[in-house]
Nucleic acid binder design. Structure first.
Lengths: 214, 214
DNA sequence: TTGACAACTTACCAAACGGTAAGTTAGTTA
DNA sequence: TAACTAACTTACCGTTTGGTAAGTTGTCAA
């Protein structure tokens, strides 16, 4: 089955925006890869901003799909979280462009404040926080404590994912390949160790209250 | 003492490049903040690329200064690493622009491959790896194992640092303030737990060998 | 006094940008 | 056959971009 033009444009745009950023890519260069003119692109998406938004929206949707609800069988909570994070890690390593784009959005969203903000990370964060609280030592953790842990793990994963070219440049390709394997194994260890220890005391007694907005 | 023009230009450029990226900033807008024309900027730095390189160079130099050699008193290795990372964390939280810029460089450096690459992170990574190996459980860790751990911690710190606007947007300002405090406390816990556990088995018997290039 | 130089300025330019306007072409429906 | 529409194209347009060229001004040393 052949992808339609709009989907192909999204594919190219996702890759180029991820590697060069919003301002580093011209809509003409995106359309050009498919042998089209930029006006064909504008026909489908209206504007460059709208195209960028569509790319982010698609990534958000795909991440939602990745976050399948926990299996019915009540397995060990720590293993549950570990599996979920490793799934996420592998998905990111497989398609680093999406992670790169979300990272760019984290860096840029204070600038692109005009556009209607979508918090693509929020559902992911909330679900991971719930997973954390399934661990016995973290059952009574407040939102700030759970979120801090989730963010540390998420940060480790994403930072490593975007650093591949740099690490290859510094240490060489084959050394990076070895590091890649060790990193995943060690990530498991990090998660286990973190979940085994108790959360740090929270700042306020009631902790962080998350307002239930979109 | 008044800063000279070149230094002031670097200050403005660092801030703008950090918040808007290389392509998002025009040299005219940088010069304009100081009441100068873009040709004054070009007089000092020759080109936009050269200016950007000078900004990165200065950041690299400042990070080198931050990495003071370990104190003579042989204190607990875990505490040593913890202190060093917390220093780094606080420096980043104090001046997030530099961290943002390095993150952007991680994302962009595969594109700007033409320019002479400088591996700004390498000295920092090597020093932190040495710190890790001071911990008893990690004394025999090979390079890949130590680097994986360092990278996980570094990732947690930097990812959190650049996420401030997003987290404030999602959860609100006061909730973020609470999270900010908890995160630092928890970071300490994460480091302790990681250093207490043993490194994951390395991929190859000889481990990762780091070529001693610049 | 002169010459040199750093630190600028005004004037200008070719290229690239995002976007508009006005077609053209092919397929579908009435 | 006629009307309509999706999917494009060519032709423009105004603006912004990084960079060049050629001055101007002030300082300081010989």
């Amino acid at each position: 089955m052949a992808k339609n033009t709009a989907t192909q444009l999204l594919d190219v745009a996702e890759r180029l925006f991820a590697s060069q950023g919003f301002d580093g890519v011209s809509i003409a260069s995106i359309a050009d890869e498919l042998g089209l003119t930029k006006q064909a692109l504008l026909h489908h998406f209206g504007s460059k901003e709208a195209l960028f938004g569509a790319v982010l929206q698609r990534i958000s949707d795909q991440f939602q799909l990745l976050l399948v609800p926990p299996q019915a069988e009540q397995v060990n909570a720590a293993q549950q979280l570990e599996m979920r994070l490793l799934e996420l890690y592998r998905a990111i390593r497989l398609k680093p462009a999406q992670s790169q784009l979300l990272m760019r959005e984290l860096l840029d969203n204070n600038r692109r404040a005009a556009s209607a903000k979508r918090w693509y990370l929020k559902p992911l964060l909330l679900q991971l926080m719930a997973c954390v609280r399934d661990a016995p030592a973290w059952a009574k953790a407040d939102d700030a404590q759970a979120l801090a842990l989730v963010y540390q793990l998420l940060g480790a994963i994403n930072y490593f994912a975007i650093s591949k070219p740099t690490l290859e440049g510094i240490f060489g390709d084959e050394a990076y390949a070895a590091l890649d394997i060790v990193f995943e194994q060690q990530l498991r260890g990090l998660i286990s160790a973190a979940l085994a220890s108790s959360p740090a005391p929270s700042a306020s007694s009631d902790g962080l209250s998350i307002n239930p907005q979109m």
